[in-house]
Design a binder for these strands. Structure first.
Lengths: 122, 122
DNA sequence: TTCTTATGCATAATAAACTTATGTATTAAT
DNA sequence: ATTAATACATAAGTTTATTATGCATAAGAA
């Protein structure tokens, strides 16, 4: 291994508020039917124009956890002599996706209410 | 102590995305000039109509940390024979408030972009 | 052809930021 | 008289991320 610093460009980081990652994964799979881990990191980067960077150290354990909870199914494939683990939502996963998306929407609405309060409650 | 279960009504919880609390505190002090801890928990509850409940176990350590970082100043007062620790923003705290609010706005914008992508990037 | 970057997975150590569960103490309400 | 509200605090444990590695193949640049 001749790796020196493989993390050079960490770009003033992307502040992932803890708790969002699971929702992000579920949302991706809700749209794409099936995806593999690396693909998710690239897609998130593309959609958010580089503002959100999912680290692999967070992503893979999160995927394993979701699988263990029965929210995801896995299917391993070999492409170009490299492994890919394709994940897709189970039925349980679909339900959880709905509630997680609802939860995020509520959170955003709440925080916006908080940031721009309509009436002062002093 | 005759305390049995003081946490009974935990109300389907309030999902505070980790990382938001500091921003919330700074925003409160940015508007109210000076506040004490318990007052913050009540105000947040009121503004968000009970959707956000700051727990004391999170709040007080957070306040101590912000003070240690020089973002807050403290002034202890005795009201009705009970202590109150009034916090207010320092100059450094004012600057941090601006950047934290900016950061939250960016996060919300990014997540909205992610939830409602304008163009499909498949 | 050799080095680097990109693709693709994984995990251990650490840190941050919470929740949960307590503890103390005074005042107000039932 | 007991409970609820006000007001602080902290320790233990959990969750969830970052940082730092590790392995392996393929593609591209030097």
């Amino acid at each position: 291994m001749h790796k020196k610093i493989m993390y050079v460009c960490n770009m003033a980081n992307s502040k992932l508020y803890k708790g969002s990652l699971t929702t992000i994964i579920l949302k991706l799979l809700n749209e794409s039917e099936k995806m593999y881990g690396y693909e998710m990191t690239q897609k998130v980067k593309a959609i958010t124009k580089g503002e959100l960077n999912i680290t692999e150290g967070a992503l893979y354990p999160a995927l394993h956890k979701l699988e263990a909870e029965g929210l995801l199914d896995v299917e391993v494939k070999k492409v170009d002599n490299r492994l890919r683990k394709y994940y897709k939502l189970t039925e349980k996963g679909n339900k959880e996706t709905v509630s997680k998306l609802e939860e995020l929407k509520d959170y955003i609405k709440t925080m916006e209410t908080f940031m721009n309060p309509k009436l002062s409650l002093d």
